[in-house]
């Protein structure tokens, strides 16, 4: 007998008492109750040590963060956002990505309650390696991408895509259970939150 059949047979025997099929109580908060609170999003992002820039001028914000550095970006990021000398990922090697000072991406969804951004590998977010190796990640976020809670974010995302949920820069709780920023992922996370031009 294959191990698959063995395991499935063991499970069916173990469930021989026909355990109850419970109804799932879904009376936790699932839908938006109020307009999203962008101020709270900023507070939650900053609480986990992300740096937030609220601006209507995306390229200006990015060039100020990057300074003299050189960044990489996925092909879907508008070129006008990027400082001169930036590299577009049309098959960059891991070494080329790792050498760059930073990466600029968009996002798929952001969650106010948890201070989370989610990337889904769309053309303006790129393959996962791109937002992983550089030490600086600049993520451009539009207000219409922001939802209040985790259930709303899960509902918006497409499960078949590779998804990366990011809440603050790389951190660890492994030393005396305190949160310490800066292990393997990008140690600097900057969010450019786009505001309508006044």
């Amino acid at each position: 007998m294959s191990s698959k059949n063995l395991i499935l047979r063991r499970i069916r025997e173990a469930l021989g008492d026909n355990p109850a099929q419970p109804e799932i109580p879904r009376d936790y908060r699932r839908a938006a109750e109020a307009p999203v609170d962008l101020d709270l999003l900023v507070e939650r992002l900053e609480d986990y040590k992300a740096v937030v820039h609220r601006t209507s001028d995306i390229s200006d914000a990015i060039s100020r963060i990057v300074g003299d550095g050189q960044v990489v970006a996925p092909p879907g990021v508008p070129v006008e956002w990027l400082p001169r000398g930036s590299k577009t990922d049309n098959g960059l090697t891991a070494a080329e990505i790792a050498e760059s000072d930073g990466v600029v991406t968009a996002a798929a969804v952001a969650i106010v309650e948890t201070g989370t951004i989610v990337l889904d590998a769309s053309p303006d977010q790129g393959r996962r390696i791109l937002s992983l190796l550089p030490d600086l990640h600049i993520c451009v976020l539009r207000p219409d991408q922001v939802v209040a809670s985790v259930p709303e974010a899960v509902a918006r995302l497409t499960p078949g895509r590779p998804l990366t949920w990011i809440s603050g820069p790389s951190a660890t709780s492994d030393i005396e259970l305190n949160r310490v920023e800066g292990v393997h992922g990008p140690r600097n996370l900057h969010i450019v939150l786009v505001e309508e031009a006044a």
Partner: peptide, 12 residues
């Protein structure tokens, strides 16, 4: 004890 852990990866 975090609102969300720094990273969650999902793949299919």
């Amino acid at each position: 004890g975090e609102r969300m852990n720094p990273y969650t990866s999902m793949w299919t």
